[in-house]
Design a protein around this nucleic acid. Structure first.
Length: 389
DNA sequence: TCTGGGGTCCTAGGACCC
DNA sequence: TCTGGGGTCCTAGGACCC
């Protein structure tokens, strides 16, 4: 297959940028988005706040210690979602091949569209400028021949950076980086690798270390090693079907009282149910998550007879799971989840497809199977999308 | 200073069926 | 009398990401 050109576009300190956009008085100030109680952590810090050593996941108390004039704003998630939608819609004007990777980042296959530009970077430059001018959001763009390199590239210059990472450049630009910079290797694996002499991404790519790494990381290792060598073969995924939703909360103080616990679970069931109903989702895997005062966790789940998003069902099943599993220790955090989701809209589409176009449907099934068997190649019919009636 | 909330994907064992 | 192999579903747990 001919070389591809992928962009990874990452909105810089997105929640903080979104708050500044909503309230220009915040411009230039050290701002964080966080919850407002004593156990909150920083969700996003503006670059001004980062100057003080404040960063995401830092306990709010600590952030305020580091930066006494810190401006703390509570998250406005429906506003962020609206901006995020605008962002993805805007990017799709340039190329239809967009994989949203989270609320504030996406991969874009620009292999075709980039041919229209004299210099390859002109497209990245144009997109970045327009996202800033029209949406008022700063972003960094990474350019690479695959998802991993594009992603690593976008991290290299922030904010408002554009970075190209070609495969022949990995020895100088990627391999010197610490293993802690490597996407996909998290804080559990860092100490393990470092203790065994794997400290840079280059060490990860080195064939001499291959068997050692496989022993340390198990089955996942092969993918990381290939990524470190610049050989990521993952294709963009355009399936955005949501897999699960959940609602959880950390209590202001640890609780033991059963009535209090029930009150919290009822509240969680209520908001989870409302969200599911708004998004037209039902699920049959109901789970409860419990975090105790000592940070030990338990997540317990069970499949329900039918697809549901009913508040009472969610509450009663969660309480049942809680009763069966609670070990009596004080509780710090409670959550309810809903998985094995089913969306009526989506199912109507699929049913319509079967009724209208039995031949086309079977072709799609075959394509789906082939796509599953042939990583690196994506087959598709000309027009998959059908209209609602 | 004391550790959020929302997700994804993977593994693995056991039950059950053929 | 002892025991196969494949497939699916369920549940628990864990790593990781933003």
């Amino acid at each position: 297959m001919a070389g591809r050109v992928l962009f990874h576009i990452d909105l810089n300190s997105f929640y903080a940028s979104a708050e500044v956009l909503k309230n220009s008085a915040l411009e230039g100030l050290p701002v964080v988005v966080a919850g407002l109680h004593r156990r909150s952590v920083v969700s996003t810090a503006s670059y001004e706040a980062r100057e003080f050593g404040v960063h995401s996941a830092m306990p709010l108390m600590m952030a305020q210690e580091k930066c006494p004039q810190l401006v703390v704003v509570q998250g406005d998630y429906s506003w962020y979602e609206e901006l995020s939608d605008r962002f993805f819609r805007f990017v799709k004007q340039f190329s239809p091949y967009v994989e949203p990777a989270s609320i504030d980042e996406c991969y874009v296959d620009v292999t075709e569209v980039i041919k229209q530009y004299k210099r390859p970077l002109d497209l990245a430059w144009t997109m970045q400028q327009q996202i800033y001018q029209k949406l008022h959001l700063p972003c960094s763009i990474g350019v690479g021949p695959n998802k991993f390199l594009a992603k690593m590239a976008s991290d290299m210059r922030k904010p408002m950076g554009i970075t190209v990472l070609r495969k022949q450049e990995i020895t100088t630009k990627l391999w010197p980086l610490s293993i802690t910079e490597m996407w996909g290797i998290g804080k559990k694996s860092h100490p393990l690798l470092i203790a065994n002499g794997i400290t840079t991404i280059g060490d990860l790519a080195n064939p001499e270390n291959e068997s050692k790494i496989m022993t340390l990381l198990g089955k996942h290792a092969y993918g990381y090693i290939q990524n470190a060598r610049g050989n990521d073969t993952n294709v963009l995924s355009f399936n955005t079907t949501v897999q699960s939703i959940s609602q959880s909360t950390t209590l202001d103080r640890d609780i033991e009282d059963y009535d209090e616990i029930k009150t919290v679970l009822r509240r969680l069931a209520k908001s989870l149910s409302r969200r599911a109903q708004n998004d037209d989702l039902k699920g049959r895997l109901i789970s409860v998550s419990i975090r105790y005062y000592d940070f030990t966790n338990a997540v317990r789940s069970m499949s329900y007879q039918e697809y549901t998003n009913d508040e009472t069902v969610l509450f009663e099943q969660a309480l049942y799971l809680f009763d069966r599993n609670h070990n009596g220790k004080p509780i710090r955090h409670l959550g309810i989840g809903l998985g094995s989701l089913f969306s009526r809209h989506k199912s109507i589409d699929q049913l319509q497809m079967k009724l209208d176009q039995p031949v086309k449907d079977s072709v799609e099934n075959v394509l789906e199977q082939l796509n599953a068997q042939l990583p690196g190649i994506h087959l598709t019919t000309a027009d998959k999308k059908l209209h609602h009636s």
